[in-house]
Structure formats: structure tokens, C-alpha cells
């Protein structure tokens, strides 16, 4: 029997089609399994961070809020600050992730040694971004495109407990578009536990 090219190509085409269907069918389960996102959080939780009695001046306290991959610094400063809470309005909290390229910056009692004003705040060792903690983390040096977001704090005066209850814009680095004003993005891209 002579080889019928058309027939042979048809058969090969069927096999190719069959293989494609298999790949398509396997794609969904594998992707469903491998790309599981954490529990969806739709509102900012109220989480106790620490107690005011535990704080020491200019000693930053690191905590994750609202998701476990969103670290923040809570600091009791030596002078009152914009939006600071507490009896001396000197307790603030900001995201610890630099808005430039995502490094975790350091809290410094003065930004002067790094070419900034003599204020307490954040200095990022990666590319030199400076954030003024007295002025709502305004960018006072370096390439950061916007301030780091502020954590909205609440103090329970009867117990001294400090709670994190929300985030102010801009959005935390890598959660949503860069420096977005929609804080809902801070609730995505991670999990609460």
C-alpha cells in the first residue's frame, strides 16, 4: 500500500490536537493548585501592636500590618510629630519598605549624617532615600517617588494598648501600582497569617 500523504498528515494532526487538549486540560488544575492566594481580606483589621509602656524613645518596634509581608516601624519620637498619637503626640508608625525599590530602610534618630535635615526618620541604605518621620514621612532626600505610607494608630488610654486600624495612602511598595492612592491594594498580595 502506497503511502497516502494526506491521510498520514490527518492522523498526525489528530495526535497533535489530542496532545493540545491534554495540555489545556492539565493547565487548569496545576494553575489552580500552584497559584493559591491567601485568605482574602476586605477590610483593615484592628490589631494590637504593643503597649505604650513597652516603648522607649527612638527605639523602633517592628510589626506586620495588615498582611504578614508588610512590615512597619512603630516609634516613640523625642518630639511631637505630625499625626503622632499618645499624650505627647510623638508616637508614629510607617511602612518599613522603601517606596523606591522595596529595600527595608533603617530608622535613624537623625537624618543629618546622611545629607538630610536634623530630624528623626528613615534612611534607606540601598539608594539613599530619606523619610522625615516628623512630617508624615515626607521624602527629604534620595530617589523615592513618594512617602512611605502611615499606619493609622489608635491608643486605648485606659490600658495603654496601641492598635493599628488602617493605612493611609500611598500604597505599600509592591502592593498595587506604584504610589497609588487606593489603600485597598494594601490588603492584597499576601495573607494575614
Amino acid at each position: 500500500m502506497s503511502v497516502d500523504e494526506n491521510r498520514r498528515n490527518f492522523l498526525k494532526g489528530m495526535i497533535a490536537l489530542g496532545a493540545l487538549v491534554v495540555i489545556g486540560g492539565l493547565a487548569k488544575p496545576i494553575l489552580d493548585y500552584a497559584t493559591v492566594s491567601g485568605e482574602i481580606v476586605t477590610t483593615f483589621p484592628k490589631i494590637k501592636v504593643t503597649n505604650i509602656s513597652q516603648l522607649q524613645v527612638n527605639q523602633p518596634f517592628l510589626f506586620n500590618y495588615p498582611l504578614t509581608n508588610e512590615p512597619n516601624y512603630l516609634v516613640m519620637l523625642s518630639q511631637p510629630a505630625q499625626y503622632g498619637i499618645g499624650p505627647q503626640n510623638n508616637i508614629v508608625a510607617f511602612s518599613a519598605i522603601c517606596e523606591h525599590l522595596g529595600c527595608i530602610y533603617h530608622f535613624r534618630t537623625s537624618l543629618a549624617p546622611y545629607g538630610g535635615p536634623d530630624v528623626p526618620g528613615g534612611h534607606c541604605p540601598c539608594h539613599g532615600s530619606l523619610y522625615d518621620y516628623l512630617d508624615d514621612a515626607k521624602v527629604v532626600g534620595g530617589p523615592a517617588p513618594c512617602p512611605v505610607p502611615r499606619v493609622i494608630l489608635e491608643l486605648d488610654s485606659s490600658t495603654g494598648d496601641i492598635y493599628a486600624v488602617g493605612m493611609e495612602p500611598p500604597t505599600i511598595y509592591a502592593h498595587g501600582p506604584s504610589c497609588s492612592s487606593d489603600v485597598e491594594y494594601d490588603l492584597q498580595g499576601g495573607s494575614v497569617d
Binding site: M14, L17, G18, V21, V22, G24, G25, K28, P29
Partner: peptide, 11 residues
């Protein structure tokens, strides 16, 4: 082929 397609539908 039909069997494959039905299986994919099921998936």
C-alpha cells in the same frame, strides 16, 4: 478525542 474533550469539560 471526544473522550478527551468531555474529560476537559469535567475538569
Amino acid at each position: 478525542l471526544l473522550g478527551e474533550l468531555l474529560s476537559v469539560a469535567g475538569i
